[in-house]
Amino acid sequence: HSHMSHTQVIELERKFSHQKYLSAPERAHLAKNLKLTETQVKIWFQNRRYKTKRKQLSSEL
């Protein structure tokens, strides 16, 4: 499990705020920019979407 830097997370968050789903080319581009693997980016987005979904569910209770 590799640790992401604060800067990388900020960039991922910024991208996520604009779009929740990335196409393969977008993911490849973002990964390259942030010096991450595409898998890391993919998993981060999956986890981030899951967290957002959970938060929405709990706020509706």
Rank of each mutant, 00 (worst) to 15 (best):
K42Y: 07
K51C: 15
F45A: 00
L30P: 01
Q46D: 06
F45K: 00
T39N: 11
I10Q: 12
Q8F: 03
Q8T: 05
L61I: 12
T7P: 04
K42L: 10
K42C: 12
Q40V: 05
V9W: 14
S2W: 13
R48M: 10
R14Q: 05
E60I: 07
Q8S: 03
L30H: 01
L36W: 03
L22P: 05
L36V: 03
L30F: 04
F16E: 02
L61M: 15
S17Q: 13
H18V: 12
K35A: 09
P25H: 14
Q19I: 06
E11K: 06
I10A: 11
Q19V: 06
K20C: 15
H3Q: 10
S59T: 12
E60C: 15
L57Y: 06
F45V: 01
L12I: 01
K20S: 07
E11A: 14
L34T: 03
K55Q: 14
Q40D: 05
V9G: 01
R14L: 08
H1D: 09
E13M: 09
K32S: 07
R48E: 06
L12G: 02
K35R: 10
N47P: 00
T39F: 10
E60L: 15
H3C: 15
E60V: 05
F16G: 02
E11F: 06
H29F: 08
H29Y: 09
E60D: 13
K55G: 15
W44Q: 01
E38T: 11
Y50W: 12
H1G: 09
F16K: 01
T52H: 15
K55C: 15
T7F: 15
H29E: 15
W44S: 02
R27V: 14
L57P: 15
K55E: 15
E13C: 15
F45P: 00
K53L: 08
I43E: 10
Y50S: 14
S58W: 08
L34E: 00
Q56M: 08
L36F: 01
K53H: 08
T37K: 02
T37Q: 03
K55Y: 05
K55A: 13
A31M: 02
A28C: 11
L36Y: 03
Y50V: 07
S58M: 10
K55R: 09
I10M: 13
E38P: 13
T39P: 04
H29W: 12
R48V: 04
E38Y: 05
H18M: 12
P25Y: 11
P25W: 12
T39L: 14
K51Q: 14
F16W: 05
E60M: 08
K53D: 10
A28W: 05
K53Q: 08
K32D: 05
T39I: 10
I43M: 11
T7G: 07
M4D: 01
M4Q: 02
L36M: 07
S2Y: 12
S58V: 12
F45H: 00
L34D: 01
R14A: 08
R54E: 10
A28V: 07
L30E: 01
R49N: 03
S2H: 12
E26G: 02
R49W: 04
P25F: 13
S59Y: 07
V41H: 00
R49F: 04
R27L: 14
K55T: 12
K51R: 13
T37D: 04
L36P: 00
E26I: 04
L34G: 01
W44M: 02
N47G: 05
H1P: 09
H6M: 11
E26T: 03
E13W: 06
S2A: 11
S59F: 06
K53I: 10
S58D: 14
Q8D: 03
K15D: 00
T37W: 03
A24I: 09
R27M: 13
Q46P: 02
H1S: 08
I10P: 01
L12D: 01
E13V: 07
E38I: 07
R48K: 13
E26K: 04
L57R: 07
K53R: 13
L61A: 14
E60R: 03
H3W: 13
K51E: 14
T52E: 15
P25C: 15
M4N: 01
H18R: 12
L34Y: 00
K20N: 09
L57F: 08
Q56V: 07
W44G: 00
R48S: 04
K55H: 07
L36G: 00
Q40S: 04
L22M: 04
A31Y: 01
I10W: 07
L12S: 01
A24K: 11
